[in-house]
Write a protein that binds this DNA or RNA. Structure first.
Lengths: 105, 105
DNA sequence: TTTGGTAGTCATATTTTTGTGACTAATTGA
DNA sequence: TCAATTAGTCACAAAAATATGACTACCAAA
């Protein structure tokens, strides 16, 4: 049987997974915000020019799924949700720096 | 006037340009092939599982536009076109290595 | 002169990503 | 109790990326 799955192309490129995880219109910006400090849904919505609920929600969910962000409920004052860089996320910072250096060229 | 352009979101993220250039289903694989040596249209089509003319053509054109690949006509034997890593492309190799390291996690 | 290899383009279709606007639901302050 | 803020979801629409199949054009060997 020649059953073909949707995922039928072997990546062949080890960097592709990470590139995929960082791809998309909003993820890099969200990531950079998270480097500055804990990040919240509505703040991102306000701070990122042109952003919309849906896309931010999707991006946050995926960044969490990939293990780059941790999601935690802060049971205090206004009671809210914070997204912070996970260890994996933190270890990605130097990679980002390198990408930035490159983008200047 | 609140004229809004299609491109209305300031990047805000310096790494985003490069990430965009490396994004897409085929570019990373093509790049890696190019690291091994000069690359040709039909060879890529054969070597990359699931690839199709159109997508490879688009990816090659964009990689060339971004200045990561150089396109040159080889006026010899079969007369063909070669894509080779530009200097900028070569300087991207260590970045890729770092991305690869990361993808293992 | 037909076949096969080179490297594509083009119009169209399908798929994926992103955006819009309405809606939910809990908490909090006035 | 009313209004605002919190953080979303949901159905759907629009836009962008990717895929398909036909077609072009050049060169060389059989």
């Amino acid at each position: 049987m020649t059953t073909k799955k949707v995922e039928d192309t072997a990546p062949d490129c080890p960097a592709q997974g990470l590139l995929k995880q960082l791809s998309g219109k909003w993820k890099p910006q969200i990531f950079l915000h998270a480097v500055e400090g804990p990040v919240r849904f509505n703040s991102l919505l306000r701070d990122i020019n042109g952003a919309n609920k849906q896309s931010i929600a999707v991006a946050l969910r995926e960044l969490e799924e990939f293990g780059l962000l941790d999601k935690n409920v802060v049971t205090q004052k206004p009671l809210h949700i914070e997204y912070t860089l996970s260890d994996k996320g933190k270890s990605l910072i130097p990679v980002f720096r390198q990408l930035e250096l490159f983008s200047d060229k």
